[in-house]
Amino acid sequence: MIGILATIGRAFLEGLAALGRLVIFAGAALGHMVRPPFYPRLIGRQMIEIGYFSLPVVALTTLFSGMVLALQSYTGFARFSAESAIATVVVLSMTRELAPVLAGLMVAGRIGAAMAAEIGTMRVTEQIDALTVLSTDPYKYLVAPRLIAGATMLPLLVLIGDILGVFGGYLVAIYKLDFNAAAYLRRTADYLEFMDVVSGLVKAAVFGFLVALTGCYHGYNSKGGARGVGQATTNAVVSASILILVFNYIITELFFAR
């Protein structure tokens, strides 16, 4: 019994220590992000990598989410003749929740993993030490550009995702459920508030930052060859996903709790 408790306690303390290390890493990275030298070339490359190349994944995810959302809410709402609420449900769910969270999770799998693997390989092959020896701060050269690109590109992806999600709902409502197109669009616009979109974009910026942060952190601290890099990649994706879901709640609470 004592043994079990001790194990749980150790795991809990270890978890807190890991969180603390991540926060310290984030603090150091933020400090380097705002001080020169900056590397516009590298920031640009990361922006293309995160923004442009994640576009197909995010587009497909949000499009189908919007479609299934319309279909599912129809099944539910038809039971109490509230079909007309579907447009509102789709647009609010997409902008406030689904687009940022789904895009965040997809990008965590795509980009967070790639960052952890790349930086992790650089760590185990001494390339990060080489950076330091060559008078280049690895935080500025490797971490800062990724954080900047993550925090700026995910909101753009989510904005596109918002539009595609609503479009997906529209497609299903009009062509499958025989809604009136004009009425559907009017309902979509009528109940949408500015804050709904803004809160989603703020979430996206935070999620983008978190994905890049965990990717860099686990890569930066990986050790022990190929196995260590693999471990870092897994940890990056898992911790990014968990942090996204936790922060999703916190930000929602901050925006909409009354």
Partner: peptide, 26 residues
């Protein structure tokens, strides 16, 4: 200057940019 055991060349950069790294970045 340092020569690393596994060379530790930056694999995302061509050879000349590796050699000129400190000159350009530093």
């Amino acid at each position: 200057g340092m020569l690393f055991q596994g060379s530790a060349l930056f694999d995302s950069l061509p050879v000349w940019q590796n050699v000129a790294f400190r000159l350009i970045q530093g």
